[in-house]
Design a protein around this nucleic acid. Structure first.
Length: 511
RNA sequence: UCCUCCUUAGCUCAGUUGGUUAGAGCAUUUGACUGUUAAUCAAAGGGUCGCUGGUUCAAGUCCAGCAGGGGGAGCCA
């Protein structure tokens, strides 16, 4: 049922040559003597609306001139096709009604620092790029649900309050649960296993909490995780499912979010590869050799590639520095108009920021290289090791069979070699790193008890979990997908904080 | 917790070896101009230079401590 009597910008294509009524906010505004150009946004999209004093009349024109950025209004007008415009359509305004005049809007077109933007997150969400990211996030969520629903999974949720840590490694948020200490869930995994024993194939989709004081661009204190769990699945089936699942999600986004990806200026090559190419499956031992530079991939050596990257970055930096000098000479020559001087100053500002980014990389990469060269078998891959490894591939890669000592107690040990557990991590390309962690679960009661003891975890809180092995234990497997991580990779953004509407991380509780 | 960088106008930044009344662009306001798409012109308002203490005739600039922030490590999705 259609409730609104007005139209949305996304529907303009159906109304060419006709009158529409739009309601929205002023995104940008440019004045002329007898003309005002407004880019209106209404949530569904952006469209330029032109107020011509000769067509709309003086009263409407005067009203229009009062409008400030982000003022709200409704208008009626005729839709014309105009290839030059965003979205391809323009509205020639006949009548206009101001709903509310906005105060001075803090977010300008000029670049802002991340801290200022996060401080104004409630407003930042209105800008075009953020609008696109949130729409992609929505599509990813929908694609996840539709994939699992189509494949006969049930969505069933795990509790958020829990009595104890699942893995015993990470710091948890402690809360008060009727005078008893309780922790905010860091994973629904164990509950997922119980649900899989009841329903065969299930997935949980909920918030998870980690109290680590992380200050990186890929960590949040509160994030959303999708955790499927399947009875009668082994590691190979798990990996097959993960790959098919990711391919479907990426494919859905590429099909339905063309405009958003364009707004984000996303390079689609790697996303397309993720749909069409088979994900390489790399044994942990091989991953170690590749990271150390002892084994090449398609003739490419990890250490050498990174060293080449450093050289490239240095060249880029010199070029940018040269550009700054050139622009400064131009400005000082006195031959430029005021406007051109401003333009060049702005450019210099942005170039300086780019150089800062390059400098950060240039200080980090040598450290990463040093740690990669002395990487020892048995360790977990650090974020930098993931970057080094994925740098050699052009689609997501799966690293499987991990040393037992670095993985959680519930992972099934490999019967062929007990040093390993049947875990798998999926690493996204382009430096994004781990987006999925999964495993076949330990289904042997005695082994499981032994592992819990070995980790020094309190046995009593796992009694219900052990029941799953006492009453009809079966091979089963599952994985966890970090929603914001995959949003980050698909949209190509540099900060996980932009991948969620209101990010929560160390030091940030508002807005 | 550790390493590293940063904190000057509403925003993004400059401020030279310490030296009179602290600068620019954007944004805002006023006026002129203009089918515009981050490059028109002119003028105006706007700052106890993160906080505390020290060195000095003199501190935005040097030193120490504290606070806040960016990036990275660890931990992980």
């Amino acid at each position: 049922m259609r409730i609104e009597k007005f139209q949305y910008i996304s529907e303009l294509k159906n109304y060419v040559g006709q009158q529409v009524e739009l309601k929205g906010w002023v995104s940008t505004k440019r004045d002329s003597k007898g003309l005002v150009f407004i880019v209106l946004r209404d949530g569904s999209g952006f469209a330029q609306c032109v107020i011509d004093i000769n067509k709309a009349g003086e009263a409407v024109f005067e009203e229009t001139k009062r409008l400030t950025l982000e003022s709200s209004l409704s208008l009626t007008g005729n839709v014309v096709q105009d290839e030059k415009q965003i979205g391809g359509y323009e509205v020639q305004v006949a009548t206009l009604q101001v709903i509310s005049i906005a105060s001075e809007y803090p977010i300008a077109k000029k670049e802002h620092g991340i801290d200022f933007l996060i401080e104004n997150r409630h407003l930042w969400l209105r800008s075009k790029k953020q609008w696109a990211i949130m729409r992609v996030r929505n599509k990813i969520i929908f694609a996840i649900h539709s994939y699992f629903q189509k494949n006969n999974f049930l969505q069933l949720d795990a509790p958020i309050f829990t009595g104890n840590a699942v893995e015993g490694t990470t710091t948890l948020f402690e809360t008060d649960f009727f005078s008893k200490p309780a922790y905010l869930s860091q994973s629904g995994q164990l509950y997922g296993e119980a649900l899989a024993m009841a329903h065969g194939k299930i997935y949980t989709f909920g918030p998870t909490f980690r109290a680590e004081k992380s200050k990186t661009r890929r960590h949040l204190s509160e994030f959303w995780m999708i955790e499927p769990e399947m009875a009668f699945y082994d590691l190979d089936m798990n990996m097959e499912l993960i790959e098919d699942f990711i391919k479907n999600v990426v494919n859905d986004v590429m099909a339905d979010c063309k405009e958003e990806l364009e707004v984000l200026e996303r390079d689609l090559t790697y996303l397309q590869n993720a749909v069409t190419k088979k994900f390489p499956r790399i044994h942990y031992d091989d991953a170690v050799k590749i990271i150390r530079g002892e084994k090449d991939v398609d003739g490419k050596n990890s250490i050498k590639t990174l060293e080449d990257d450093v050289a490239d970055l240095k060249t880029k930096k010199t070029l940018l520095e040269k550009e700054i000098t050139e622009r400064e000479t131009k400005i000082n020559s006195g031959a430029l108009k005021q406007g051109e001087i401003n333009f060049n100053r702005n450019k210099i500002d942005t170039i300086k920021n780019e150089i800062k980014e390059l400098d950060e990389k240039l200080t980090n990469i040598p450290q990463w290289l040093a740690s990669a060269k002395k990487f020892e078998w048995g360790g977990d891959l650090g974020a930098s090791d993931e970057t080094i490894l994925t740098r050699l591939f052009d689609c997501p890669v799966m690293v499987y069979n991990w040393p037992a000592q670095v993985k959680a107690f519930y992972m099934k040990r490999d019967p062929k070699d007990e040093r390993y557990v049947k875990g798998v991590d999926v690493l996204a390309p382009e430096g994004y790193g781990e987006i999925v962690g999964g495993a076949e679960r330990e289904d042997n009661l005695d082994f499981l008890i032994e592992r819990i003891k070995h980790e020094g975890l309190p046995m009593e809180v796992f009694e219900w979990y052990l029941d799953l092995r006492r009453f009809g234990s079966v091979p089963h497997a599952g994985f966890g997908l970090g929603l914001e991580r995959i949003v980050m990779w698909i949209t190509g953004i540099q900060h996980i904080r932009e991948a969620i509407p209101f990010p929560r991380f160390y030091g940030r509780l508002e807005p």
